[in-house]
Design a binder for these strands. Structure first.
Lengths: 241, 241
DNA sequence: TTAATAGTGTCTATAAGACATTATATG
DNA sequence: CATATAATGTCTTATAGACACTATTAA
């Protein structure tokens, strides 16, 4: 067995990176945050769009999640987002600089909370609308595949968990919640069924105040357990005929 | 941004490992495969039980999954198991030898397919019954937490996917399938409901032959799509009163 | 009073839970 | 025939889906 017969130092170490897939909803559409690759001579994929990320700094980052949070704050200014691990991708060919493994996180933010380009080394960043299973252009490295995985995870979990709720600010109306589910799922969601589903699951509790507008005011709610998504006992499943 | 302002070589690289949580069912109980840590002087946690795993060998392993499959074959002789990524754990303190990140996979095998200690460098290995959220003893490194996560993922997914089916050999009866679900879930599963759930989901198809025994023979089935688990539209959920 | 959206109610279809009953093999 | 387990049937209950209807605000 490797671990017992050779010392760690004998192994050439793969490069370790962390990347973050950051989702938000802008104008009734799901978007992902991308950054432009630098154009230096030694840089791989110069000028292409990529997921925000970079090398783990073992002096600065106490763990992988801290590293992801650091990168997220650097790009968006957001400190406490919803963040979960998406997976890791590691092989000899994904980066021309050698064998690399990246730990990928995915974050969901309300658009209002984001201020782009806060970091010292601000790079060109932008929100790209999700169309189908990507952003309609080739991304750097294997980030296209990673993004596809993230989209499919988000859509999948939207069928039976409260994940899309993290795309909203701290308080929101049930209509807004229903809307963000329909944006993520890409299809209309029935109001009545949605409301009973949400209210009976204990996902939300009433917040003080109402949202006013040009029509009937709506009750504001907040997540009861903001750290953990709620699981529903059934998936959304349109009636068969 | 780190990636653009410093070259990879300036970063001290974390150690990269892969570990595998291997589940099987023996005698109506879920078990996990553990290996004993070597007792050498420089070895961390000598003599403790740990998940099988080790360093990524960038000359041998073309990617992380290949590395996991290699370790799995080395310990069990099994070549094509059900294998999925569980997550990754990386920080400064989990291994006394320095900042490490491990990519963890989890595998499920029929017990009949396993032959322990096939590798050249055979280490002491053993099946440990799962009781509650672990094996009732402290494991090396942070493997206790990792195992907990794996158990909870398996039990969670057993509520709404066909995952436990991978604990059975290629053909099986519906009663055997029901039994393995009840072992994983730790509670009885109603036969009638289970059968309609499984048959209407398209999870299985009839195989040739029947399983005979001291009573009525049972139809054999096989997985219709052995690579991917099936999702059920509802969770198992005992009636409330 | 109208427009717009919030919120509720009704009916039905689906599938699970609980448990009883029938079917088919062996010894 | 007795026994064991496979396979099916019946009845109830929970909840989603479809969609109609009522409520409450601003302009």
């Amino acid at each position: 067995m490797a671990r017992s017969t050779r010392s760690p130092q004998e192994f050439p170490r793969p490069l370790t990176t962390v990347d973050v897939v950051i989702f938000t909803v802008i104008d009734d559409q799901l978007h992902v945050l991308l950054v432009k690759r630098p154009t230096g001579d030694a840089e791989p994929h110069p000028g292409m769009w990529a997921l925000p990320g970079g090398y783990v700094d073992i002096e600065r980052d106490k763990d992988l999640e801290a590293c992801a949070l650091h990168k997220l704050k650097e790009k968006t200014g957001v400190v406490s987002p919803y963040l979960e691990q998406l997976g890791s991708w590691g092989n000899a060919s994904r980066d021309p600089r050698g064998w690399t493994a990246t730990h990928v996180y995915f974050a969901m933010l309300p658009h209002e909370a984001v201020k782009l380009g806060q970091g010292k080394h601000a790079t060109e960043t932008g929100w790209f609308p999700i169309e189908g299973d990507g952003v309609g252009r080739k991304l750097a490295f294997d980030h296209g595949v990673i993004l596809e995985t993230a989209i499919s995870r988000l859509r999948g979990k939207a069928e039976y968990t409260s994940l899309p709720a993290y795309l909203l600010p701290e308080t929101f109306t049930l209509s807004e919640l229903q809307h963000v589910f329909s944006v993520v799922l890409g299809r209309p969601v029935d109001k009545s069924g949605f409301r009973t589903r949400v209210l009976s699951s204990g996902l939300v509790e009433e917040a003080d105040g109402m949202k006013t507008g040009p029509s009937r005011p709506a009750q504001l709610y907040r997540l009861k357990t903001p750290k953990n998504p709620t699981f529903f006992p059934r998936t959304f499943s349109p009636r068969k005929q």
